[in-house]
Design a protein around this nucleic acid. Structure first.
Length: 637
RNA sequence: GCCGGUGUAGCUCAGUUGGCCAGAGCACCCGCCUUGUAAGCGGGUGGUCGCGGGUUCGAAUCCCGCCGCCGGCUCCA
């Protein structure tokens, strides 16, 4: 058979030849260094046979693309170590993940962080004792099942039962450890050198909270020790950009035990928050939205009409008044639907676009709370569009345009997902088909690349989700554009068409920042707290050299404030060096130092955050430049 | 909610196997210094050791329960 290599040359091989055979045909050194292969662009085990016409790329030890293979093999060594140290341990799954790997176990006794070191030591002992080959074999299903049943490996038995009948059962063995595994794996344990076990966590078997909770051991591995060290160092660096650290440090917000899952916004943080609300208002004005205000607390009747009482009640804060059940709003949509319903609409009036910086309460699980990124009380830059079916596609595309226009102002990168019908949902499949198709069409028309997230839609409709990542690379959903055929029906929302008949409206839900809380959290981690001038709580800090410059400093501050800039003076009796040190660590964008020279010439010495002394400047010119920077909402590059 | 970890001053942390009135730096207050681009000097205030029980002659330290937080799982903006 003929195999095509990356440079388009063909390699002639006997039928049944494997990836490793192909590497050997090219050269023995390549064969020895082979970690895995890519066949027609897909990562595959080097032990599997190739087919005529396959396009083959050999991945070597040291190749980034083969890192998942190294990590997967390292996970197997971890499982072997766990078997040695904790007799009776049951093993579940141990795949490579983005920056490492994990392995799920059921230990006979709970283990602690101290055991992580023991596990790691045992792994090193195993690896030092010899170079173990990873041996692949395919076994009949019944035989594989019997083997794991005899060993008491109940998770492996269930894993086999869950595999489709036509999938061959493969084992990988290294040393005395045999695992049910799809692969791919390294040839031997020799390249496993630079690894580290990182943490312990609970994880439900098959991700199902009704199944047993296993113990997940997280670790990572690299080809070179230096890469491992660099990775661990990056994690340490990222922790410094953690918004939960920066927020209190910069006096933006803080948390208290008496209000778990809710931020206290300090004056500086409130300024940032309000600037973002202002930006949203400005954009909504420009895009034909009208702002509304709807109630916080509603009679349960409203939630029954919307369906939240049945599909979302676990997440709602419920109370009562004079014996009547009430619910604090977790979403604005029913309120906006109610508002829309208060009058009759002509097709000529549509679309109606209601925006509201709506304060929401959601009763999130205590263990899910996470700084500003997951809270129980937050403000959405929410809006609902009520339109005719014919208008829905353009409206959805308009939302996407507006979203990307917004993000462009922060230089933040997003990934796009289309979340489809969840198992728990309202409405019939035909409506879901239509709604999902419409959102997909909007994405396609906009030329956006997106992943489909099956089953992750809202209970009332599918959604486009816009994700961003925090300092540690965890993905968070910010913006969202959702289609909804359900609420218009449940609230009986109609308009009068050109035919003088009643027609059902289509409803779109959209939020671009998502929530201001989450967006600010992500923004802080993205910028490390170095906010653009227009968002900085204190934009300019004026620093006198000595007491005698105080009145000139007040004059400078006055002129800056008159020009609309947020300026403040530091008149404490501290040294200039100390004031600058503090201004730098509090990330004030502009520092102005004034002493005898500046006072005489009517100038100011400019220092920008993160840069050195930029010399004396004329105040009028500086004010003009700063105002322009604020006005354009300029982002530093 | 679940698994593991953790909780000492406003912040960052020390507090040997339970044993003198629980310490340091920063912040804060007072005083001195009058400062030229990342921390001038001296003094002082400040702690229910997360909360509640228990063991003990004696608990920040050991045990139990609760709460918060951290890392995950589940769930979501």
């Amino acid at each position: 058979m003929r195999i095509l290599l990356p440079d388009d040359t063909a390699l002639e091989l006997p039928d049944g030849a494997t990836g490793l055979d192909a590497a050997a045909a090219i050269g023995p050194r390549l064969a020895a260094a082979t970690a895995a292969v890519k066949v027609n662009g897909e990562l595959r085990d080097l032990r599997l046979p190739l087919a005529d016409g396959d396009r083959l790329q050999v991945l070597r030890v040291g190749d980034d693309e083969a890192l998942p293979v190294l990590r997967h093999s390292t996970a197997h060594v971890l499982a072997e170590a766990a078997r040695h140290l904790f007799p009776g341990v049951k093993v579940a799954f141990g795949p490579p993940i983005d920056n490492g790997f994990y392995y799920d176990f059921e230990f006979p006794e709970p283990i602690t962080d101290a055991d992580l070191e023991r596990l790691e030591a045992e792994m090193r002992r195993i690896l030092a004792a010899g170079e173990w080959a990873f041996v692949r074999s395919e076994v009949p299903r019944a035989e594989a099942r019997a083997r794991f049943e005899a060993e008491g490996e109940v998770y492996k038995v269930e894993a086999i039962d869950r595999l489709p009948a036509d999938v061959p059962i493969s084992f990988y063995r290294q040393g005395d450890f045999v695992d049910l595994c799809r692969g791919p794996h390294l040839q031997t344990s020799k390249p496993i050198k630079a690894f580290r076990l990182q943490s312990l966590a609970g994880a439900y078997w098959l991700g199902d909270s009704s199944r047993p909770q296993l113990t997940r051991v997280y670790g990572t591995a690299f080809w070179k020790p230096a890469d491992l060290e660099a990775h661990l160092h990056r994690i340490e660096e990222a922790k410094r950009r953690d918004h939960r650290r920066l927020g209190p440090e910069l006096g933006l917000f803080t948390f208290s035990d008496v209000a778990a899952g809710t931020a206290f916004w300090l004056p500086n943080g409130t300024r940032i928050f309000n600037q973002l609300v202002g930006l949203s208002r400005e954009m909504c004005d420009a895009h034909g939205y009208t702002e509304v205000k709807t109630p916080q607390l509603y009679d349960a009747e409203l939630w029954k009409t919307s369906g939240h009482w049945f599909k979302y009640r676990d997440h709602m804060f419920v109370t009562e008044a004079e014996g009547r059940p009430m619910g604090l709003k977790p979403m604005n949509c029913p309120g906006h639907a109610q508002l829309f319903k208060l009058q009759r609409w002509s097709y000529r009036d549509l679309p109606q676009r209601y925006s509201e910086p709506g304060l929401l309460h959601r009763n999130e699980l205590s263990g899910a709370l996470h700084g500003l990124l997951r809270v129980r009380h937050f403000v959405q830059d929410d809006a609902h569009i009520f339109c005719t079916p014919e208008q829905a596609l353009d409206e959805a595309k308009g939302c996407l345009d507006m979203a990307f226009e917004t993000y462009a102002q922060f230089g933040i990168e997003t990934t796009v997902e289309l979340s489809t019908r969840p198992p728990e949902r309202m409405g019939d499949d035909a409506q879901w088909d239509e709604a999902e198709a419409l959102l997909a069409r909007a994405l396609d028309d906009k030329g956006l690349v997106y992943a489909v997230n099956e089953g992750d839609g809202a209970f009332y409709g599918p959604k486009i989700d816009l994700h961003m990542t925090d300092s540690l690379g965890r993905s968070w959903q910010l913006g969202t554009v959702q289609m909804d055929f359900q609420l218009p029906e449940r609230f009986d929302l109609t308009y009068t068409g050109a035919d003088n008949g009643e027609h059902r409206v289509v409803m779109l839900h959209r939020a671009l920042f998502g929530s201001y809380e989450r967006f600010i959290g992500i923004l802080l981690e993205d910028t490390g707290g170095d906010l653009p001038l227009w968002l900085a709580p204190d934009q300019v800090l004026v620093l006198p050299i000595a007491d005698r410059h105080e009145s000139y400093v007040e004059e400078v501050v006055g002129r800056l404030r008159t020009a609309g800039l947020r300026a403040r003076a530091d008149l404490r009796g501290e040294s200039v060096g100390k004031k600058i040190a503090e201004a730098e660590s509090s990330k004030v964008p502009v520092m102005l130092v004034v002493g005898d020279r500046e006072q005489e010439t009517g100038q100011v010495s400019v220092r920008r955050h993160g840069r050195r002394d930029l010399g004396a400047h004329d105040l009028a010119g500086l004010i003009r430049d700063l105002r322009a920077e604020v006005g354009e909402r300029r982002v530093p590059v």
